[in-house]
Design a protein around this nucleic acid. Structure first.
Lengths: 315, 315
DNA sequence: AATAAAACTGTTATCGGTAACATTTATGTA
DNA sequence: TACATAAATGTTACCGATAACAGTTTTATT
C-alpha cells in the first residue's frame, strides 16, 4: 500500500503538502495540487485510517447496542444493521454489535442504541460520546423511528374505507413509547368516526393472538377487522380466525405492523404498516456520523410508514 | 486514558518494560512485573488498539460478506452475526458487514463469507487475507457448518420410529452443497429401511409448499410425514395440510430444518433440525482469529445438530 | 578475582498520518 | 526601492505502541 510519503516523493513535495491537498485543499496552489492528485492516482493511494485514527484519538468504531434479548428478537434487527452498516462502510467506519453484557468492552466514537428500557436512561445519559436511539422515546434522547401514530391512524382509516364495521386493536402489552403512539393513532381515527375504541393487549407472541380468537370466537361478529401492533400478533389472529373457520378477508380483516419478514410468510400475506428499516438504519448512521464530526445534527428523524398490501383486507 | 508512558512513569521503568510485561512477560523479573501490574491497575490501563494496529499493520476488522440478497433472507443471519460479534468483541476485533456491492471498500484482516455461489470461487481464492466460509462447500475452502447429512438422517429415523409409513422429502431447488447433503441423509435412512425415497424440490418459499399439498391432496395418504429442507417449506406444508383438513400430527407429520425463528411462530411449532447458529458463529470467529494470528487452524468445523421437538410429530 | 556468557532493562527509530511552528516566496504599500 | 504583510510550503514533534539494538547487571566458569 502506498503511503503519504510515497506520494510526496513522486510529486516532489513534502508529506505535509500531500496531507494538505487531502484535508485543506484551499491552502495549496493549483499547480501542486495537480501534481499531487496525479501521484495519488498513479500510486492508487488510499489513506491509512488507522494512522489517522491514532492522531485524531478516534476509533472509527460505532457500537450498536441491542438491549433486548436478541435470541427471541424479531428479524427486523437484521435489516436495521444492514442499513447502518451500509452508511458506516461508506464513511469507512465499522459497526460493532454489542449487548448488555459486553457493552463497555473496547472504545468507540459513538453509539446507536435500541430496545432501551426506563432503567437504562441513567447510564445512557452519562455516555460521553454521541448517541442516537433507534425507536422513539420520551426522555429527550434523539431518535430515529417510524411515525407510529400515523401508521395505525392511516391503517384504521383504510380498514374503515374497506367497509369493516367493527375495529379491534390488538396491542403489545408493554409500556414502551412506540406502543402508546400506535394506540393513540388507532384511537384518534376511531373517535373521529364516532366509534368507541376497543383495545386488547398481549405479549408479542403469535399464539397469544390465536388463543384470544379461539376463546372469544362466538362473541366476534363478522365484519370485524383487527388492527395489530405487530406482524407477530397479526399472524396469530389470522391463524385463529382460519382455525375457527372464519373467512379472511371477506368476513374478517387483519392488519399488522412492521412488514419486514413475517407478513411475507403468512398466508394470506398480511396487509401491514411497512417500516423501511434499512432506510431508517442508514439515516441513523448518517445522523450519528454528523454528530461525531460535530456537524450540528440534532433532533429526531421520523419516517412516514407505507401500507403494504397483502390479502387480509377485502377490496 | 492512561498510556504506556503513564504506566512506565508510575512504575519507574521504561515504556519498553511495560510493553514487555504485556507481550513477553517471561523476559521481565518478577519484581518489576509486580510494580508494573500495580501501576496498570491503579491507572486502569487499557492498551490502545489503534496504536497497536498501526505498528502491526493490521486493522482489527473482520468482514462478514453476506452474498445472498439480504432483504429476503432468513432471520438466522442475525444469530450468525451475534455469534461472530460475540467472539470478535472478546478479542477486540470489530465486525464489518458487507455485501456484494461494497465488498472491497476499506481494509480488513480477514473474511467470513456466506451464501457463496459457484461463480464466486475465483475472487474468493484470490483474497490475500484469511478466509472462512459459513456453510459447507466442495471447493476445498475451509468452512463451518452443521452436519447437514446427519440432520436429515436422524430426523428421518425419528419419523420412522414414530410410526409414519410414508416419507416424503421436500427439498430446496438449488444446487448448493448443503442441499445435496440433506438429501443424502434422507435417502440413506430411507434405503436402510428398504423403502424407496420420494423427493420433491421447490424454491424456498412457504407458499410453494402449501400449493404442493393442496394440489396433490387426494394422492396423499394418511400416515405420511414430510421431511423438509427448511422451516419455511415446513411451514407451508403444515399450512397446506391444515387447510385441506388433515390432522397434524396424528395423520400427517411435518419436520423442518433450521430452528431459528420460523419453527417457533408456526402453529403447532415445527419439530425441526435445530442448528445452533450462535455457537457456530462464535466458532467461525474463533477459527478466523486463529488463522489471522497464524495459529495453524485449518480444516472444517462441523456441528452436530439437535432435534428440537415441536408439535408436528406424534408421540 | 578476572572474564565470558546470559539475563535483564533502556534507547532509538518506526508505523502513517496531522498540528504547530519555521521558513521561504509572493504581493502590496509607502 | 525598501519593508511589512500575506500566502505557500517545509520541518519538527507527536499520537501510542513495538522491534531491533545498545547498555547494564547478574551469574557462571576458570
Amino acid at each position: 500500500m502506498a503511503t503519504l510519503m510515497d506520494v510526496a516523493k513522486r510529486a516532489n513535495v513534502s508529506k505535509m503538502t500531500v496531507s494538505r491537498v487531502i484535508n485543506h485543499p484551499d491552502m495549496v496552489t493549483n499547480e501542486l495540487k495537480q501534481l499531487v492528485y496525479q501521484a495519488m492516482q498513479e500510486l492508487d493511494y488510499h489513506p491509512n485510517l488507522i494512522a489517522k485514527a491514532l492522531v485524531n484519538n478516534s476509533t472509527r468504531i460505532v457500537k450498536l447496542c441491542i438491549l433486548e434479548d436478541i435470541d427471541t428478537t424479531e428479524p427486523y434487527y437484521m435489516n436495521l444493521m444492514v442499513g447502518i452498516a451500509k452508511t458506516l462502510d461508506l464513511h469507512q467506519y465499522s459497526l460493532q454489535l454489542v449487548t448488555r453484557r459486553n457493552f463497555d468492552i473496547g472504545n468507540c466514537d459513538g453509539y446507536i442504541i435500541t430496545g432501551m428500557r426506563k432503567g437504562d436512561l441513567d447510564w445512557i445519559k452519562k455516555l460521553d460520546k454521541p448517541v442516537i436511539m433507534f425507536g422513539e422515546n420520551r426522555y429527550g434522547l434523539d431518535y430515529v423511528d417510524t411515525n407510529n401514530k400515523a401508521g395505525t391512524y392511516r391503517m384504521a382509516k383504510l380498514v374503515l374505507e374497506r367497509g369493516y364495521k367493527h375495529l379491534v386493536y390488538i396491542g403489545i402489552d408493554s409500556k414502551e413509547s412506540f406502543e402508546y403512539s400506535r394506540e393513540a393513532g388507532f384511537i384518534q381515527q376511531v373517535q373521529e368516526n364516532q366509534m368507541i375504541p376497543e383495545l386488547y393487549r398481549f405479549e408479542n407472541h403469535s399464539h397469544l393472538g390465536e388463543e384470544f380468537i379461539t376463546k372469544h370466537w362466538d362473541e366476534i361478529e363478522p365484519n370485524t377487522a383487527f388492527i395489530c401492533a405487530s406482524d407477530r400478533l397479526a399472524m396469530g389472529i389470522e391463524r385463529g380466525i382460519a382455525r375457527c373457520g372464519g373467512s379472511i378477508p371477506n368476513d374478517y380483516g387483519v392488519t399488522g405492523f412492521d412488514g419486514v419478514f413475517l407478513s411475507q410468510v403468512a398466508s394470506p400475506k398480511i396487509t401491514t404498516v411497512k417500516q423501511s428499516i434499512i432506510e431508517m438504519g442508514s439515516a441513523c448512521g448518517e445522523n450519528l456520523l454528523d454528530k461525531i464530526n460535530s456537524k450540528s445534527a440534532q433532533g429526531n428523524l421520523i419516517f412516514e410508514p407505507k401500507i403494504s398490501m397483502g390479502g387480509t383486507l377485502r377490496k
